[in-house]
Amino acid sequence: MLIINKVSKSFGHKRALDEISMTVQDGTIYGLLGPNGAGKTTLIRIINGITAPDSGEALLDGDRISLDKSSQIGYLPEERGLYKKMTVYEQVMYLAQLKGMSAAQAREEMRNWFKRFDITSWQKKKIEELSKGMAQKVQFITTVIHRPRLLILDEPFSGFDPINAEMIRQEILRLNQEGTTVILSTHNMESVEMLCQEIALINNGRIVLQGNVQQIRRQHRSNQFRVVYEINGQSVEQKVEKKPEETNNDLLKRLAKKGEITAFEEILPTMNEIFIKTVQS
């Protein structure tokens, strides 16, 4: 379990993080959202043990996070980077060993991943010879090869074509099912809805929204409903708003007068709408 407890961090006069608290349960996929410059990267660096908070603490399974925990954490930074002159094989081996794997372990895991991504033939290629998407795959492997318990992914889908993005999405889900806790930072709200159970929305260094994705969407409902009538054998779709004092049944009764209702469902706001509304207010 990852617990962030009242973490603050300032750079000069700028307060990048202001008493941030959150709890990430084991085995969940946690979405870390926020506009650019909100403080996400700083928070991610603190969770990684790269930077220390000015006050507050970040605990992984009850222990303060430092670099000693690095073998349990996998981090895919937003700005991808690999040693350009190294071959794919050397690169993966080096980073895996830096995460504390033995050479033999690293070699075996690498073989599995290369097979899974069908890139065994790239091993001898230098990073600079790879296309951006290919390099991204290698980077993803270097992030997860040491079987981290906590995986921090910053914009994991950027730079991938739809097919590869889907492949990465499936890998994230698979790793999550195997017990890996995932922190996902992304601007792609669609994937947040698809993957995340919980989210925290950060703005100006503070958490402005936090909780279960479905609950949040329900909390933000704006009494919008989608109704489909059958009028003269024709299907008509309409968006209607429920009055505050009305119940659903009241609304249905009111609508039933217009014609035969064939479908009725509440329109929950998308995370995208919630994001924009919350940040702008």
């Binding site: 990684n48 790269i50 954490i73 981090y75 980077g81 690999l82 980077q139």
Partner: peptide
């Protein structure tokens, strides 16, 4: 090359 951030997370 931005490998730095990966390195210092290890």
């Amino acid at each position: 090359s931005r490998i730095m951030e990966v390195m210092i997370s290890s």
